[in-house]
Amino acid sequence: MTVSHKDRQIDNIEFNVGDIGRSKAFYAGAFGWTFVDYGPTYTEFSDGRLRGGFTTGEPVRPGGPLIILYSDDLDATQLRLKALGAVISRETFSFPGGSRFHFIDPDGYELAVWTNLD
């Protein structure tokens, strides 16, 4: 298996928001971000370098956005995280374009890992 240039790197940041339109207006006005909508509950943003998303699919989590890392091998990454003491907080699920799972690190931070569908 070959390793991609983005394996084990932060690949996406996802904000759970109360109102996607409000968040788009705020970040477009403040920083000039651009957006691509993927239905009524998700929009992708780009700041010109990094991509992320706004979603209303889950409750707003005060304290910060969800950091999402990329993995070429989702199963191996999940096993490695479990071996290091991570707790899987959301089992692997599919979405348009890929699959991901969430985990809690030793300090209680929730992160996610995703892979694309080939």
Score class of each variant (00 low, 15 high):
N116Y: 14
L66H: 02
P62L: 14
F103C: 03
I13S: 11
V60N: 15
F103R: 00
L111T: 05
A86V: 06
K6Y: 07
Y42C: 03
P59N: 15
M1C: 09
I10D: 02
Y27R: 09
A86Q: 01
K6V: 14
K6G: 11
P106K: 05
S4E: 10
I67K: 04
E58Q: 15
I68K: 08
D11A: 03
F101G: 00
T34I: 08
L111V: 06
R22L: 08
F101E: 02
T55P: 10
N116L: 08
D47P: 03
I20A: 10
R22A: 14
R80Y: 01
G39M: 07
D73W: 08
A25H: 15
A86S: 12
L111N: 03
S71N: 07
S4L: 07
H102M: 04
D47M: 05
T56R: 06
E110L: 03
L69T: 11
I20K: 02
G108M: 02
F54G: 00
A86L: 02
T77F: 01
T115D: 00
N12M: 15
D11Q: 09
R22E: 14
P96M: 04
T43C: 11
S4V: 04
V36P: 03
G29K: 15
L66I: 04
L81H: 00
D105V: 13
F35D: 14
S89K: 08
A112T: 09
R51Y: 11
L69Y: 10
L74A: 08
L81G: 01
D47Y: 09
I104D: 01
A76H: 11
P62G: 08
S46L: 04
D118R: 01
T115H: 12
D107N: 11
S46H: 11
V3K: 15
F45R: 00
G29V: 04
M1Y: 12
F54P: 05
R8H: 12
L66T: 00
E91N: 15
L84V: 04
G52K: 01
E110V: 10
S89M: 14
G21Y: 12
R22D: 14
R51C: 08
N16L: 10
Y109I: 13
K24S: 09
D47C: 04
T2F: 08
A83F: 03
T2A: 14
T92L: 02
G63N: 10
T56E: 11
F45C: 02
F15G: 01
P106G: 06
H102P: 01
S89C: 13
T77L: 03
D72P: 02
R49L: 12
D118E: 06
F101N: 02
D75S: 05
P96L: 02
L66G: 01
P106H: 05
R61G: 05
L50D: 13
R90N: 15
T55S: 15
A86C: 13
E91H: 09
S23L: 14
G98K: 00
L79N: 07
Y70E: 00
K82Q: 10
G18Y: 07
A28I: 13
Y109V: 06
G98P: 03
L50W: 14
V87D: 13
Y109W: 01
G97M: 07
I68D: 02
V60S: 10
P65C: 11
E91L: 07
Y70I: 12
L84N: 09
T41S: 13
